[in-house]
Simulated scan of single mutants.
Amino acid sequence: MERKPSAVARHGVLRLPPGFRFHPTDEELVVQYLKRKVFSCPLPASIIPDINLGNFDPWDLPGGCEEERYFFNQREAKYPNGSRSNRAARSGYWKATGKDKQIKSAGFSQVVGMKKVLVFYRGKPPSGIKTDWIMHEYRLACPETKACIFPQRKNSTHNSVIPNGDWVLCRIFKKKRATNMEIDAEEGEQEGPIANNGIRFIDFMGQRDRDQSHPSSCISNSSCVTELSDGSSNGEENSSSRSIP
């Protein structure tokens, strides 16, 4: 019997064996992981840990900072009688951006979840400083809808239809920025040649002369001044024209 690869726990985060990668789709995250978590059903793999995001800054979360990290988090209300979630962290807060995206099942085109994009800001709102940390927060569309309910098995004593807490699934990563060398290379391709001393020149004079109405003397791509500076050909033509009386 073939043995399935098992995850290894390190520093509070379950890691897959070497060679295995965890790259689920949005639908898989909602249906196979979040939905099962909410209704207390067995997960396909115990690879996503539970965590309270309010106790961590994104760079202090368990796991490698260079990798995408996945966590289950229970949402907390910002106010006792309100529906807004508490987005505060140790030294900043998560701020939502854009509209929520619907996640549909591939087979039935039913809305099974919602995806919210958030950005981490240092400091306190509204004067926080934006960072490169991004979070995708997945939640069930509505636990009472048909697409979000697990059918009960016969002779089952476990009521899996009742949601077990307001769980969300979070995917957190750091957005990569282009380096200065990459930016300089792109600008060099767009703006023109660079001199030996590193200073970039733009031929404004040549462009101005080409725009003037001198079609006979400005046929080539070079400037008109360069063409008129060669006096040998002009001298021969003038002398031949004056040799005949």
Rank of each mutant, 00 (worst) to 15 (best):
P49M: 11
A141S: 14
M114G: 15
E144D: 13
H23P: 04
Q110V: 09
G123L: 14
E28K: 01
P125W: 07
V31L: 01
E67P: 13
F22Y: 07
Y33R: 00
Y121P: 10
G63K: 11
I51Y: 04
P163D: 06
L29K: 02
L34F: 06
F150L: 07
G123I: 13
W94A: 06
I162V: 15
S127D: 14
C148K: 01
Q32C: 05
A89R: 04
G82Y: 14
I103P: 08
G54S: 11
P125I: 06
M114R: 14
R153P: 03
K104W: 07
P49D: 06
Y70H: 11
S85F: 14
A77P: 06
N52G: 01
W94P: 10
Y79R: 07
K37N: 05
V38Q: 00
L53W: 03
K116W: 02
A45S: 10
I162P: 01
N86M: 06
V119T: 15
C41R: 06
T25N: 03
K99G: 08
T145K: 03
E68C: 14
D50H: 05
I149P: 02
G123R: 05
R153C: 10
P126F: 08
P151F: 01
R87V: 04
F56G: 06
D60P: 04
N55Y: 13
G113H: 04
V117M: 12
P143K: 06
E28V: 03
D100H: 14
P80N: 12
L61C: 09
R36K: 15
D132S: 03
V161T: 15
G82L: 12
P17C: 12
F120I: 13
Q110G: 13
G98Y: 07
P80E: 11
R84E: 10
P62K: 15
P143D: 15
R87F: 13
Q74A: 02
V112W: 02
E68M: 09
S85G: 07
E27Q: 05
Y93M: 09
C148W: 00
M114S: 12
C142L: 11
A96H: 03
K146G: 04
I51F: 05
S46A: 07
L140T: 02
I47E: 05
